[in-house]
Amino acid sequence: GREWTEQETLLLLEALEMYKDDWNKVSEHVGSRTQDECILHFLR
């Protein structure tokens, strides 16, 4: 997939603090990424 922007990464980190590993909520918060993309990015 395409590179994550700084904004997307910030949203991901913010969402992780709020929702922990509720990836459905996390991906909704990021908006432009799927659950799978969020998980894969997080694991890097």
Results as ranks from 00 to 15, higher is better:
T34A: 13
S32Y: 07
Y19S: 04
F42M: 07
E14C: 01
L11V: 09
L43K: 15
S32W: 02
S27D: 02
L10K: 13
E37R: 02
D21F: 06
E14R: 05
S32F: 05
F42S: 14
K25Y: 03
D22H: 06
S27I: 07
W4K: 11
L11T: 11
V26Q: 03
T5M: 13
D21L: 03
H29A: 03
E3A: 10
N24M: 12
D36K: 07
E14L: 02
D21V: 04
K20T: 08
L16Y: 15
R33G: 02
R33L: 00
T9P: 03
D22S: 11
Q35L: 09
K20N: 08
N24S: 13
C38R: 04
S32D: 13
G31Y: 03
Q35N: 12
D22T: 02
W23E: 02
M18K: 09
L12M: 05
L11D: 07
T9D: 09
K20I: 10
E37A: 05
C38D: 05
V30P: 02
L11C: 03
F42E: 15
N24R: 10
W23R: 01
E37M: 04
D21I: 02
V26G: 01
K25S: 10
Y19V: 01
G31E: 11
E6G: 07
Q35E: 09
L13W: 05
K25V: 07
D21T: 07
C38V: 04
Y19H: 12
D21K: 15
E17K: 13
D36G: 11
W4V: 07
E3W: 02
V26H: 01
D36I: 04
Y19M: 02
L16R: 15
T9A: 09
T34H: 04
D36Y: 04
L10M: 06
D22E: 10
E8L: 00
D36Q: 11
E17I: 02
E37T: 01
L40N: 13
H29I: 03
L13H: 07
K20A: 08
V26A: 11
T9G: 08
G31F: 04
E17C: 01
V30Q: 01
T5V: 03
E8R: 00
R2V: 12
L40D: 15
V30G: 00
E3V: 15
E28K: 05
E14V: 02
A15D: 02
C38G: 01
A15F: 02
L40K: 13
D21H: 12
I39E: 15
Y19N: 07
E6Q: 14
T9N: 10
M18H: 10
A15G: 11
G31M: 09
T34Q: 14
K25T: 08
R2N: 14
H29C: 04
L13Y: 06
E3C: 04
L40Y: 14
N24E: 11
D21P: 11
E8A: 00
L10R: 13
R33D: 00
L43M: 13
D21A: 09
D36H: 09
G1R: 04
E37P: 00
W23A: 01
K20M: 08
V30T: 04
L11G: 07
E37V: 00
Q7G: 09
H41K: 14
E6C: 09
L12N: 00
L11M: 13
V26D: 01
M18T: 12
T5N: 09
L11W: 06
R33W: 04
E6S: 03
K25F: 06
E28S: 06
Y19W: 09
L43A: 14
I39R: 15
V26I: 09
A15H: 01
